[in-house]
Design a binder for these strands. Structure first.
Lengths: 189, 189, 189, 189
DNA sequence: GATGAATGAGGCTTCATTCAT
DNA sequence: TATGAATGAAGCCTCATTCAT
């Protein structure tokens, strides 16, 4: 683990925090362990983040946001179903490749320490919302707040990932049929 | 002959733990605060629970289980839809009446400290599973593991409660249409 | 371990204390463990001994004294050498049979908590002193305080037991030659 | 770059531990008292010693070893009797000057918590052994394990110091005649 | 007398944060 | 800016002792 060059320390700390939190839980992630994993001195961490809580908040934001960066060939022109499916697949891919990211995201969300000052929705979230609105348009479901629908989609993907990680042999079925349930729920077909 | 170990005190500690954890998060719930809230001395807590973790585990079990106790007039004879709806309603009721219980349950689940030695499913969980199986019978969805379906229902109820607590004005819509989505997802109608 | 009959509780506690102290050291011998080992309730211990320190002091006294009870056929008429040898042998016997007793005695002595209100010497100690005085009579060594000689004999037996317990194969040599050293030291022959 | 870990502080802690243990016994030496006596914060103690037991072990090693450092003009060329006498005198000197060191050493030895991973014998111990071997050579006593003889010499010095500290007026006699006993024991003359 | 729950003062240790170097 | 020693407030837990039953 080469010591990262000076400008990247900020990122190195976030990476280290992610790793440690994933391995040992937020409660088991002292700043000392994080700075060690980041290859810096204990005190240096506080040059980059004023408090541990600031670090955690930024980590939360990064994790929340980062996903949207990995949607290069999003099918902008396709229909709502296809666009939702695309995001569904990418999230499941991420869940398989980096389960820690989602684990930690969930832990941070549950910790009740996140500031959450009505941040801008990420690209993915915005797209999920658009798709959900389109899919429910015209039916009674259009009475539902769009944010509620977004929460629902997120919950569905999260438990699908959780289940797949615990039972990898069911990955294919859950991916396919999990989406089908989601879609039928929203469209009735 | 001696002062008997008090069942009340046992319960008082669990109640206090629930309250403190709900208010300040698990991490912000020192045993000192819990015992104080329970009206006992710091050391006494350890007469009833050998370690803090034991207390948390028992709290988890209680919360997990307790819900099933409040289903007096469960419609055993009704069809799957009605039975699922009954449970859906009761959970939402609980979420409205005691949001802490579900908050803390989620926190404990996320903490990764629960022993979870393949405990028997609660009555409610078992019924959800039965209903889900009946509802998906005959369709492709019957290929899905029943546990996955249960996770899904739980996730759906949780986010519904979360949303309602944040936006009480949408309570009615979310309760009705949230269930409709769930049902359509499972049955396609 | 049958619960001892009421009158023997005092002794049961002392026995238990001896056992626990030997196994886990004085520091690792909480009153709770002692009372449990004695088959009584935690609080009952304090019916028999006002404080833990009192118990320890009495245990000390018992251990110190008890040895003298097991000298039934002490050769009162024999010469100093034979009498000293008799005691030497009996102490080594005890050290082999009940190493805990001496271990704990040493620990208690080192703890610095013993009251030690110039207690009467035990029979054995008194005999050691008489023998030592006789053996050194007429030589320069008679200038030494008799108590010093007693300490010396005790030290010699203690380390002999310690060594034998650690290296049982040397038991015979140490017993024989250890005594020879002691005797030559005192008499020069 | 940072405040360097201070060798002084390391030593100050050991000194403080020695002092407190001597005054109040190991059991009466909380880390809080030690750090206070060392003039540092409670937490700082653990910068220098990972656990209290580590501190105690190192203290033990220091005490065990340190004595050998104060034998500047050891008479390497002299005969066994003279060399043994030299060490005997130095130990008694130490016992008079720093009785705590030997008290605590004995306490630590008795505590049963020392790691004692077959450490190299100190210079003094090695010399005692050599002298004892020379002195007993040719007699039956040469059948005795050398370690036993070392234990014996140590025991003899310890009780001599103990007695002298309790009865300073006998210092001269005990020093002279105590050694004479030791020597006669080993050589028979 | 016997019981064991109750007490609360400490004990050891961890940790976020500060600050001298 | 980087470092890591220093800090001291908690945190969890143990334990001698008391006291209601």
């Amino acid at each position: 683990m080469a010591r990262p060059r000076s400008g990247d320390k900020h990122k190195a700390i976030l990476d280290a925090a992610l790793r440690i939190c994933a391995e040992r839980g937020i409660a088991g992630a002292p700043t000392s362990a994080i700075s060690k994993a980041a290859g810096i001195a204990e005190g240096s961490l506080f040059t980059y983040f004023k408090t541990k809580n600031d670090l955690l908040n930024e980590l939360y934001e990064v994790l929340r946001t980062e996903f949207s960066r990995h949607l290069p060939d999003f099918p902008h022109g396709a229909d709502a179903r296809a666009r939702l499916r695309y995001i569904w697949d990418r999230i499941l891919d991420l869940g398989a490749a980096h389960p820690e990211q989602l684990t930690v995201l969930a832990q941070l969300r549950a910790s009740g320490k996140m500031v959450n000052d009505n941040r801008a929705p990420t690209f993915a979230l915005a797209e999920v919302m658009r798709a959900a609105i389109e899919l429910t348009a015209g039916s009674e479901l259009s009475d539902l707040p769009a944010e509620y629908l977004v929460l629902m989609v997120r919950a569905q993907t999260e438990i699908t990932i959780e289940y797949i990680n615990a039972h990898p042999e069911s990955a294919a079925v859950c991916r396919a049929l999990g989406f089908q349930i989601l879609l039928k729920g929203l469209t009735g077909s």
